[in-house]
Amino acid sequence: MPERPHSVEADPTVEVDLCTSNVLFRAAVSSGTSTGVCEALEFGDNDKTCYMGKGVSRAVEHINKTIAPALISKKLSVANAILGVTLAVCKAAAVEKGVPLYLHIADLADNSEVILPVAAFNVINSNSHAGNTLAMQKFMILPVHGKNFREALSIGVELYHNLKNVIKKKYGKDATNVGDEGGVDVAASEFSGQGNMTWTSSCLMTPAARQRFTASAGIQVVGNDLIVTNLKLMSKVMGEKSCNCVLLKVNQISSVTKSLQVCKLAQWGVMVSHCSGETEDTFIAELLGGFALGKTRLVSLADLSASYNQLLRIEEELGSKAKFAGRNFRHSVAN
């Protein structure tokens, strides 16, 4: 029975309740702000009188009247039907198997070990995610030198707060507003004529569809709008060598199974991304551990604190078996 929780952007989204013989499983679907033309489409209401057209009543009705009966009668391949259902089914399968969700996902990926990712902290926002016009939409930091995920998380959090304090001291409080993905919304005018901030780039995300880069550069070029987690586009981009890393957004491909196919097809790194319209569902943390991917693009602090906390729990549960990607973040086990 789907419900309608709200994302961190206060927009309605879909939540699926899947009932087995004696257990209830629940999964919430995130929603992105900037979407590509080739990714899986969201089924919205487009009724401007309700949530400014962002309601999801039609999606809820589709699940109740089409997907749920087909699932019960076993006439539908659920893994490729709708994201909320596939997430709930994946959770149910883990309980049926009697293992943590991340270990079930690791089994699906044929991974014998769980590797905690390097979190890419979104520290400064711009353009569609903020109110400024800086050339780069996001400035992210990767604390690769931590000895484990817990220490790396601490480094990222401390750097985020210290950066905000530095900007506030130099440019004033108005320069430290927060963008919709948790990064500081720094007005572009604050930087002009007042010195420059120096950044060392180890990873670049392709900013526009159809724009080509050479993937042979000394940095990792992440395919975002070039690929939009689309298997056909991935094959094309790989042939052109336009990038050397794929940005995986589960909501763009709408299936756990297809997400795994993306990781297997990628001949280079994989970066898992949150959505700007995230929920409190921590499935992304379980997927990161199970797929054993090198890094993840998560928003800073409160918006995804539940996912950060779940990754900490996974690391604690694994104990001495826990591994951290660290400086090897460019490479994933899944491929």
Rank of each mutant, 00 (worst) to 15 (best):
V166T: 10
T282Q: 07
A119C: 13
I72E: 09
N165F: 03
G98F: 10
T296M: 15
Q261P: 01
K258G: 05
R330M: 14
L301A: 11
N64Y: 01
R210C: 04
V29N: 05
E181C: 13
L204K: 02
V123C: 09
T133C: 10
A209Y: 03
G277D: 08
Q194E: 09
V228T: 14
F139H: 12
D107E: 15
N148G: 06
Y102E: 01
K264N: 07
S21F: 04
V270K: 09
N251R: 12
A130F: 05
M197G: 06
G289V: 01
Q194I: 00
R212N: 06
T214V: 12
A109V: 01
S259T: 14
E96F: 04
N162G: 02
N127S: 07
A106K: 07
V99P: 06
S30W: 02
Y51A: 08
D45L: 02
D11Y: 09
G319E: 12
G156F: 05
K147Q: 11
Q137N: 09
K321P: 02
E190L: 06
G156A: 09
S300E: 02
Q211K: 06
A92N: 13
V222N: 12
V14L: 13
N230W: 04
L247M: 15
V221S: 00
L142F: 09
V262Q: 06
A266M: 14
L247I: 12
V333D: 03
I105C: 06
I219P: 00
V114S: 00
F121N: 03
L311I: 06
V118M: 11
T198S: 15
S57K: 14
V85P: 08
E61G: 10
A94L: 04
I63A: 08
L83I: 12
Q261I: 00
Y171S: 15
N230V: 00
S259M: 07
V250P: 01
S31L: 07
C50Y: 10
V222T: 12
V37A: 11
L204Q: 01
N328P: 05
G179A: 10
T198M: 10
A135F: 12
Q261H: 13
T66K: 14
A59S: 15
P207K: 01
F149K: 14
G55M: 05
N46Q: 10
S21K: 08
E317H: 08
G172H: 03
V78Y: 14
E286M: 11
L287P: 00
N122T: 15
A27P: 05
F291N: 02
R212M: 07
V157G: 00
L116S: 06
L288E: 03
Q211Y: 05
V299H: 13
T229E: 07
K147S: 13
V78N: 04
E151K: 11
G172N: 02
C38R: 13
S255H: 03
D174G: 04
N64G: 02
E15I: 00
L318H: 07
G172C: 14
H104E: 11
